[in-house]
Each structure stands twice: as structure tokens, then as C-alpha cells.
Lab assay of single mutants.
Amino acid sequence: HHHHHGSGALAALHAEGPLAGLPVTRSDARVLIFNEWEERKKSDPWLRLDMSDKAIFRRYPHLR
């Protein structure tokens, strides 16, 4: 159930192989992290948004 927010940013994801479903670039990863943060913020208003490279690598090590 993907609803768009204002920016309408869509992340490019790997379609197949071992990385299927994972973001292709760091900016794609940022979109995913932001979208998930927006969702989680509803139940956790104090949740901090962390889109640093460090956060991205921790989450998606293949982007190193």
C-alpha cells in the first residue's frame, strides 16, 4: 500500500538477483529511509530522521 507524499519521489530498486528489492543508489536509499520514517513517525512522533551516509551503510551495506 504505497501512498505518495508531496515530493512523489520513487526509489529505484534492484529488480533481480541477490540485491532484489534493495535501493540502487544512496539517494534511492534516502527515499526509502524517509518514507519509512514518515510511516513510523505516526506511532512514534519523536523518531529522528537519520539519512546520513553512516545510517545508509548500516542499513544497506551493499551501497558502501
Rank of each mutant, 00 (worst) to 15 (best):
Y60F: 14
A55H: 11
G6M: 15
F34D: 01
W46R: 11
W37C: 01
D50H: 04
E36D: 08
R58E: 13
P61C: 03
A11H: 05
L13R: 05
E39W: 07
R48C: 09
H14T: 03
G17E: 04
D28V: 04
P18H: 07
H3T: 12
D53S: 07
V31W: 12
R58I: 10
S43Q: 14
G6L: 15
F34I: 07
S43T: 15
R30K: 09
P61S: 03
A12V: 14
G8A: 11
L32V: 08
P23G: 00
A15V: 13
E38T: 14
D44F: 11
Y60C: 01
L13M: 07
I56P: 00
G8C: 12
V31A: 09
L22F: 05
G8N: 12
S27R: 15
G6S: 13
P23T: 00
N35D: 06
H14Y: 13
I33Y: 02
L49Q: 02
K54S: 12
L22T: 03
K41D: 05
S43E: 10
R40T: 06
L47K: 06
K54M: 11
S43D: 12
D28E: 03
M51C: 09
H62W: 02
D50S: 04
E16L: 07
M51I: 15
D53R: 09
L19D: 04
D50V: 04
H62T: 01
K42G: 08
S7V: 12
F34S: 04
A15L: 13
S7N: 14
R58H: 12
L19Y: 14
H5C: 15
W37G: 01
L22Y: 05
A20R: 12
E36I: 05
A9T: 15
L13E: 04
A55C: 06
G8W: 07
E38I: 15
N35V: 12
F57E: 09
P18R: 06
L13Y: 04
H4T: 10
D28P: 01
E39G: 06
W46D: 13
K54V: 08
H4I: 11
P18K: 06
A20D: 04
Y60V: 00
R30L: 08
H62E: 01
P18G: 05
T25C: 08
A9I: 15
R58G: 09
K41S: 11
I56R: 00
R59C: 05
A15S: 15
